[in-house]
């Protein structure tokens, strides 16, 4: 049995769109998600810049260049102006052009930045993929130095962009060495895999005890898909019962997964079963209702909590 260590994990920085986690090196153009100042690929100190800031800089530079050309034309025109009329026409044309371009650039700057980002990601696709691979190697180095919490934090960041089972498994294996607590910034859905993994199932079992709110449709689906394998695990039935207990949290889940509840209702603790009982009573018929009533008659018929329900 692995001795679990008490750790403090940094909160996970959630962003609306995953590409916002990326930084790019001003020197070698390699990408990273690890948020360090110095580039791990070329070693340039302070070379890293968020990709959005980089794109904004390119757009701003282009706008400044346009403004400069505009100014140059106006100056040349003024220098060679032969009459007051020409001067007035030149200034009016210059002002109109400047106003038009300023209005358009203000309005379209967000879209122009997105176009720059698209160009960056397409042009430097090799640097993007290899940058994340370098990040992964850096995480492995940190693990070999013995800093497991930091390794997990690094893998968590990389995992927001790289979705493969190997990375998920590495995170789960690390999490299983930590004493998991309710107040930790934990996740479950991003760690779900397609294939059966006993470590993932064990982790789900832990989550069912301390963070039931993380157990949602995809997790229920996973457990049902691999139920036969899970039942062959030493505590498989207990984990399935715990997940069934998590389903009792919402009426929607009880409606969507009645057969999960039917199979493991008998193993639910009293408070969980009471919630299920109230739900089933409102249904009044069906296989779930029948099973719940059967268990109620056997175990809770004389329980005062159930009399008041």
């Amino acid at each position: 049995m692995i001795k679990k260590i008490a750790v403090t994990l940094k909160p996970y920085n959630r962003v609306p769109f995953v590409y916002q986690k990326l930084k790019i090196c001003r020197n070698c153009r390699h990408f990273t998600v690890l948020g360090e100042r110095d580039c791990m690929s070329c070693g340039k100190t302070g070379g890293l810049q968020p990709v959005e800031k980089r794109a904004a800089g390119i757009v701003r530079r282009d706008q400044w260049l346009t403004g400069l050309i505009l100014l140059l034309l106006i100056v040349i025109g003024l220098l060679f102006s032969a009459s007051a009329l020409q001067t007035v026409l030149l200034i009016a044309a210059g002002a109109a052009a400047a106003a038009l371009l300023w209005t358009l650039s203000k309005r379209f700057t967000p879209a122009l930045r997105r176009i720059q980002l698209q160009k960056m990601f397409q042009q430097y696709s090799y640097e993007l993929a290899s940058g994340l691979a370098i990040d992964h190697q850096a995480a492995i180095r940190v693990f070999q130095e013995g800093d497991k919490p930091r390794t997990y934090e690094m893998l968590r960041e990389i995992g927001s962009l790289v979705h493969n089972d190997q990375l998920k498994l590495e995170q789960i294996m690390l999490l299983q060495t930590f004493q998991l607590r309710k107040d930790m910034d934990l996740m479950l859905e991003p760690l779900l895999m397609d294939s059966f993994s006993p470590d993932l199932v064990a982790y789900i079992g832990e989550m069912a005890k301390i963070r039931r709110d993380l157990i949602k449709e995809n997790t229920f689906r996973y457990m049902l898909q691999h139920e036969m394998y899970i039942l062959n695990m030493p505590n498989g039935e207990t984990v399935l019962a715990a997940v069934a207990g998590a389903a009792v949290r919402k009426s929607r889940y009880m409606t969507m997964y009645p057969y999960l509840l039917i199979r493991y209702a008998r193993l639910l603790p009293k408070d969980r079963f009471l919630r299920l009982y109230k739900f089933a009573k409102s249904a009044r018929s069906g296989p779930l209702y029948d099973e719940v009533m059967r268990i109620y008659e056997e175990k809770f018929k004389w329980d005062p909590d159930f009399q008041n329900a």
């Binding site: 609306p16 769109f17 995953v18 590409y19 990326l22 879209a111 122009l112 997105r114 176009i115 980002l117 698209q118 990601f121 397409q122 696709s125 090799y126 993007l128 993929a129 290899s130 994340l132 691979a133 962009l161 790289v162 979705h163």
Partner: peptide, 18 residues
């Protein structure tokens, strides 16, 4: 111009290909 969602998908597909 792509949307921010499309940019995210581009990054994820690039990394998957990589």
């Amino acid at each position: 111009a792509p949307s921010q969602k499309q940019l995210s998908k581009l990054v994820l597909s690039t990394l998957r290909r990589g």
